[in-house]
């Protein structure tokens, strides 16, 4: 394994790292839940990798994500908008409108034909429209986060969750459960509520097809189905949707090296 450059994405829920070879292919990756002491976590990440490949000398690291400034080993800090666009474009080979639904924020990035960011919008002010919205609601209904997509898709009907606010949605769910509504239709309604919020953001920048998805939340099959229904667009996913920020950062690190 010949890692030429590294990227690290310090997100709000997970820390992701990707290593690329000289041709920009992802040949190594690692993902962990984010620890309270990010600096220490990054040190131990890099130590583990060093044990695997003997030396990190001459391998540049670019950091992204909300904790990017805490990565003192990085040669450069780049925002997650640029990194996600870079990663997805490189992996899929074309531009479009990228929807990234992360644990604590979501973003819409219009990627041009050359892979450049043309426009973007971010929801970073509240949990509505993010993974946290689903996580909270899943916990309330005692469904595991990994299962909630398939449970939602097994619903034969759907209820409307009118609140996009995480706190109000939770009270709405409690009231529905108290009135005997089954878990499946509630979950389906929750997915739709989240996606409607995301689609509003897509409309604010203007959808340029194809629609691309990234972020940990898009592993959930109900998310993919509902977003296709709401936008009437087929969605495309990279192979590792959760690692696109780290991958993009690694590609930028490779560029630094080649300069």
């Amino acid at each position: 394994m010949k890692i030429a450059a590294l990227g690290i994405d310090v997100g709000s829920t997970t820390v992701k790292m990707a290593g690329v070879n000289a041709s920009g292919e992802m040949i190594w990756n690692h993902l962990e839940q984010v620890a309270p002491r990010v600096e220490k976590q990054v040190d131990s990440f890099l130590n583990k990798l060093k044990e695997e490949i003997n030396s990190l000398a001459g391998i540049p690291l670019v950091a992204t994500g909300y904790g990017r400034n805490l990565v003192h080993q990085a040669v450069k800090n780049v925002t997650e908008i640029t990194c996600h666009a870079k990663g997805v474009y490189h992996q899929l080979g074309h531009g479009g409108t990228l929807v990234d639904i992360g644990g604590q924020d979501s973003k819409v990035i219009v990627i041009g034909a050359q892979g450049q960011v043309v426009d973007f919008a971010m929801n970073d002010k509240c949990a509505a429209g993010t993974g946290r919205f689903l996580e909270n609601s899943a916990a309330r209904m005692q469904v595991s986060i990994d299962e909630m997509g398939s449970v939602a898709l097994s619903a034969t009907e759907e209820v409307t969750i009118s609140s996009t606010c995480t706190v109000f949605a939770e009270s709405e769910i409690i009231s529905m459960v108290a009135h005997g509504v089954a878990v499946e239709p509630i979950l389906m309604g929750l997915h739709r509520s989240l996606i409607k919020r995301v689609v509003a953001m897509v409309r604010s920048v203007g959808l340029v097809p194809p629609l691309l998805l990234s972020g940990g939340v898009v592993k959930n099959p109900a998310i993919r189905k509902v977003i296709e229904e709401e936008t009437k667009e087929q969605v495309f996913l990279p192979e590792h949707p959760q690692l696109m920020g780290a991958y993009g950062a690694a590609l930028l690190a490779l560029k630094v090296k080649q300069k």
């Binding site: 780049v78 960011v117 973007f120 971010m122």
Partner: peptide, 17 residues
């Protein structure tokens, strides 16, 4: 808030690309 830094940073990166 740090989100402002990310937005402005991303905007400048976009213009610079």
């Amino acid at each position: 808030p740090r989100q402002v830094a990310t937005r402005i940073g991303a905007f400048l990166e976009m213009l610079d690309s």
